[in-house]
Simulated scan of single mutants.
Amino acid sequence: MDEVEELEKKLKPRGEVSIIGCGRLGVRVAFNLLEVHRGGAEKVYLFDSAKIEENDIVHRRLGGKVGEYKVDLVKRFFGERAEVYRTNINKDNLHLIKGDVVIICIAGGNTIPITREIVNYCHERGIKTIGSNGVFGIEEKVYIDDSQYTKGPAKLLGVKNHTVVGTRKFIKDGEPITPYTLDEIAKKMVILCLKYLYYG
């Protein structure tokens, strides 16, 4: 029994992760990653300037209050392991990004230009990146691709070695975003992140 306890003590979190965007997808990624037990990320940095609104059901279901910053909800649960920035990443504050892995979960409007900037900034510094590649669809398979070779929206980024997870569907396809699709994308993003932290 002592041997098992010694092995348990050796299982510690490792590495740091930035999550850019704490909306419906980002909050799922943050909770799933920080919930990893006997390992996972040592520190998670969260970036989002938005406050919880009435229609942010997942945030409210997790205990968030309307008017509270989305990143503060995560901080309340995970304390010191979550460092929050109540700002959106833009070309003027890329220097705030840190860690071994960056997970990009931004949405709303044309996110291609800033996503490209984030990916290029990270790659220049040897930071692995994971992003979304379409979250639309009713009963869609969730794919893991390199953005350079994918068929989805991430193809428009024009970057290499950026892992993307999604349905490959565009907003123009006119399909909704379902919670179970977001759950599956978040799950796959977290698994990829853990593989990067543990295996490089």
Rank of each mutant, 00 (worst) to 15 (best):
M1E: 15
D2N: 13
E8S: 15
L11C: 12
P13C: 12
P13N: 02
G15W: 01
V17R: 07
V17Q: 07
S18F: 07
G21I: 03
C22E: 13
G23K: 02
G23I: 01
L25V: 00
R28L: 09
A30T: 07
N32V: 00
L33S: 04
E35L: 14
G40N: 09
A41I: 01
E42R: 11
K43A: 11
K43H: 11
V44N: 06
Y45D: 11
D48H: 04
I52C: 02
E53M: 12
E53K: 10
N55C: 06
I57R: 02
V58I: 15
H59M: 10
R61G: 14
L62F: 15
G64M: 06
G64E: 03
K65C: 05
G67S: 02
Y69C: 11
V71P: 10
V71I: 11
D72L: 12
R76Y: 05
F77Y: 15
F77L: 15
F78Q: 07
A82V: 13
R86L: 05
I89P: 12
I89D: 11
L94A: 11
L96I: 01
I97A: 12
V101N: 06
I104Q: 09
I104E: 05
C105V: 03
G109V: 03
T111E: 06
I112G: 04
P113E: 03
I114Q: 13
E117P: 05
E117Y: 02
V119F: 01
E124S: 15
I127D: 09
V135E: 03
E139C: 09
E139T: 14
V142H: 01
I144L: 12
D146M: 05
K151D: 13
K151W: 00
V159A: 13
K160M: 12
K160D: 14
N161Y: 02
N161F: 01
G166W: 01
T167R: 04
K169R: 10
I171M: 06
I171L: 06
K172T: 13
K172F: 07
G174A: 08
E175N: 08
I177T: 08
T178L: 12
D183R: 10
K188V: 08
M189E: 14
I191W: 03
I191G: 12
I191K: 14
C193W: 00
L194R: 06
K195S: 09
G200I: 00
G200C: 04
